[in-house]
Amino acid sequence: MSDTTCHMSISLDGFVAGPEQSRDNPLGKRGGELHGWHIGDPRATEADKTANGWLMRPRGAYVMGRNMFGPIRGEWNEVWNGWWGPEPPYHAPVFVLTHHAREPIQMEGGTTFHFVTEGFDAAYVQALETADGNGVDIAGGASTVRQALNAGVIDELSLDIAPVLLGSGERMFDGVEAFGFEPVEVLQSPLSTHIRYRRDSAG
């Protein structure tokens, strides 16, 4: 599938991560409540499994924000090769947005982290070229998805809406004026309502 996809878990009040994200608490305070449907809550249902299938579709390349890549900020003073160990579960090139240039890191299993300092559009173009028709995924976090929405590049957006209010944290839709998608599939579980949206045919 050559579509550009994005799949995010989000609270009812629009947060994709809680406040105070840190190395020990990567999703921020209460951020884990958005993800129970796929990280082992025993109340997960068949609907959650199906949505997990959407989430895990293999893609040709990924675009990711620095915040998603790791908790460190500023210059690359510390050895950090992502959260995912020596063989990250991407198995494709990953273009990481950053203000600080760094040589690519080739990991085991087909994942290479490329660091792009020229902004979202440049990263997306590189990802498209590298994906070679196998589709690009916008891997998060909030800021990167926001840029992708504003750039209008996402063909399929999946949201897992958890019935929780976080009250603060990372908002995804701030500064996005038009949604521009129509729902094409809805699944429901006690933990999340999964909605698969496609870009508006008019869009």
Binding site: N25, L27, G32, I39, M56, P89
Partner: peptide
């Protein structure tokens, strides 16, 4: 097979970064 990318991050933090 069951662990998602975010699930991996959460699991690693819970395991105190010990693979």
């Amino acid at each position: 097979a069951r662990t998602t990318r975010i699930g991996f991050v959460v699991g690693l933090a819970r395991a105190r970064f010990d693979f």
